[in-house]
Structure formats: structure tokens, C-alpha cells
């Protein structure tokens, strides 16, 4: 009886040919983007998305072309921050799906752009008995399509706003093996540092390059007098970076205006470059640039 290897082809399903074609498509997108950087934290609520948007604004201010991939499939927020409304029609042409045009020329792709209503949840089926396997596999596929089917064009930077937790980095790493690295973000609280240290350990084990650690919400800056005060009790984040042997990229004081939605047509950084928080963002971005170039 013949064996698998004796039978030519793949049985007529043409799966191999198609998987290879999908891989080439993904590669053709990625080859036009110089640096791919993921911003992540094991912990939720540390200000990843607001910081990602403002890091993008800072890079644009330095003359770079920037896109943001909102990899937080179930809690997307980048559209909101960059002023792209859900009512905006999705443009699909021969080149793929056109990215959203965010403020300051930042391109973006997010699940929010694909949903019919602003309050629509991300659900892969209306059936109540959808299995966890189905949801998990669909999320991996969705991420691939968001990267590969978006017409990013030529970019200097693609920032990837990761969801809370460290599980999604597996997907990103397999999609984008040439990832310049991840920027880990924590707030000073011990709880956050405890969880982020696990995320750093995982990335080290997986040999995902870590650009460094940002200490976000590091104290409170009064928008009126710019005096600083503590916001969280916690140990020095710089010592966590030292302990994990990764660069400390800087501390960014909390400013109530940083996460505001951009109805004004501008992100916090652009309007407040000279504030204490604005300068801190700039310093962190300078450190990121030094690390990856």
C-alpha cells in the first residue's frame, strides 16, 4: 500500500499553496515597515494605549511615519484616542483594507473599525455555545488579518498596542519574527511590578528582545503649577529594570490630560511637549530610538 509520501500533491485541498501565499502577503506588508515595536504590560490599566498613542505622536513630531496596530482585540481603544470614529466607512480596495487616518497622520487598524456599531462587542459567532478553542483560534487569525490585510504602505514605525497580559506576544512573535522589541510598561505599584516581572521573564525565555521598561503614572503632575506628588505607593521601578537586566527607559508622571480623547484634533504630547510629562515622553522615546537603531 502506498504511503503519504508516495502520493503526490496535498490531496487536492491546495492548503499548502494557500498558506504560502498568505505568508508572502504578510511578508510583503512587513517589508515596507522599518521598525515594529510592541508596547505591552502583564498588567491592565497601566496606561498602555494612551502611552502608545503619545509615543506615536512624539515619533511623528520627530519626522517619522507611524502606524498603530491595536492588538487589544476585545478592548480596543486606539480609534477613540486617535479620533477615528466608528461611523467612518471602511475602504477596501485591491491593495487591502485602508487603515484609519488618525490625528497627526498616524495610521491605525483596530477591531473598532470593523464593528458595525460603537458598542458592538467582538464576538465571533452569535451562537451561545462557541467554544474557547474557536474564540482562541479566531483571535489568532484576526490578528494575522489585521497585520497582513491592512494597506500600511511605507512606515518607519509600526507600534503594536498589546492587550493586558503576556499571552498575545506569542502570536505577534510568530507573525513578526523581526520585531525590533517590546517596551514593557508598569506603574509603580508593587502589584503591577509583580505581574510585569512575569511578562519580562516570559519574553526573556522566549528570546523576545526587550527594548526596556517604562515607569508610567510615576507620580502626579499638577497641570497648573507642575508640582509633582506621589500617585502610587511602591518600590523603585528602576531597580526592577536592574534586577531583570533590561534598560530603564524613564518615568512618566501622570497628567489628567494624557488620555483624553482627541476631539480637539491633537494628542496630548503635541500640545504639551514642554510640560513635565511631555518632556518625559520625549526622553522615553529618545531612549527607545537609541536602543533600536
Amino acid at each position: 500500500m502506498k504511503t503519504y509520501e508516495d502520493l503526490a500533491g496535498d490531496g487536492g485541498s491546495n492548503i499548502i499553496e494557500q498558506v504560502e501565499a498568505l505568508g508572502e502577503k504578510l511578508r510583503s506588508r512587513l517589508d515596507r515597515i522599518k521598525y515594529k515595536v510592541a508596547l505591552m504590560s502583564g498588567k491592565g490599566g497601566v496606561g498602555k494605549s494612551s502611552l502608545t498613542a503619545n509615543v506615536a505622536a512624539c515619533l511623528v513630531d520627530k519626522g517619522h511615519s507611524v502606524g498603530i496596530l491595536d492588538a487589544d482585540l476585545n478592548g480596543p481603544s486606539i480609534c477613540h484616542l486617535l479620533g477615528v470614529k466608528n461611523s467612518q466607512k471602511l475602504t477596501i480596495d485591491d491593495r487591502g483594507v485602508q487603515p484609519g487616518a488618525g490625528v497627526h497622520g498616524i495610521k491605525l487598524m483596530s477591531m473598532d473599525m470593523l464593528l458595525s456599531n460603537p458598542d458592538s462587542p467582538v464576538m465571533w459567532t452569535e451562537e451561545a455555545d462557541a467554544t474557547a478553542v474557536w474564540v482562541s483560534t479566531m483571535e489568532s487569525t484576526a490578528l494575522r488579518e489585521l497585520v497582513a490585510d491592512t494597506d500600511w504602505g511605507d512606515l518607519d514605525f509600526l507600534l503594536i498596542d498589546m492587550p493586558p497580559g503576556s499571552d498575545r506576544i506569542d502570536n505577534i512573535r510568530s507573525l513578526i519574527p523581526e520585531l525590533a522589541g517590546v517596551v514593557e510598561i508598569t506603574i509603580p505599584s508593587l502589584l503591577s511590578q509583580h505581574i510585569v516581572s512575569k511578562s519580562i521573564a516570559k519574553n526573556n525565555k522566549m528570546k523576545v528582545p526587550i527594548i526596556g521598561l517604562i515607569e508610567n503614572m510615576a507620580g502626579y503632575t499638577c497641570p497648573h503649577c507642575e508640582k509633582e506628588g506621589p500617585l502610587f505607593e511602591g518600590e523603585d521601578v528602576e531597580s526592577l529594570a536592574e534586577q531583570k537586566n533590561i534598560p530603564y527607559l524613564g518615568k512618566i508622571p501622570f497628567d489628567t490630560r494624557i488620555g483624553r480623547k482627541t476631539d480637539s484634533g491633537s494628542l496630548y504630547y503635541i500640545d504639551n511637549k514642554d510640560s513635565v510629562t511631555g518632556k518625559a515622553i520625549n526622553l522615553a522615546v529618545e531612549n527607545i530610538l537609541k536602543s533600536i537603531k
Binding site: E17, Q18, V19, A21, L22, K25, K89, L90, T91, I92, G96, V97, M113, L114, L115, S116, N117, S120, P121, V122, M123, W124, T125, E126, M138, T141, A142, E145, L146, D149
Partner: peptide, 20 residues
């Protein structure tokens, strides 16, 4: 396999946009 952008999501999102 490559002609329908976001084809898997188009057919699977319960509340996706019509354009998809």
C-alpha cells in the same frame, strides 16, 4: 486565499460592518 482582505473575520464577526 489572498483576494478577500480580512475574509475570515468578514465571515465570522457576529457584528461586523457591511463593507466587510
Amino acid at each position: 486565499a489572498t483576494e478577500a482582505p480580512m475574509g475570515v473575520m468578514a465571515g465570522s464577526l457576529a457584528e461586523g460592518k457591511d463593507e466587510l
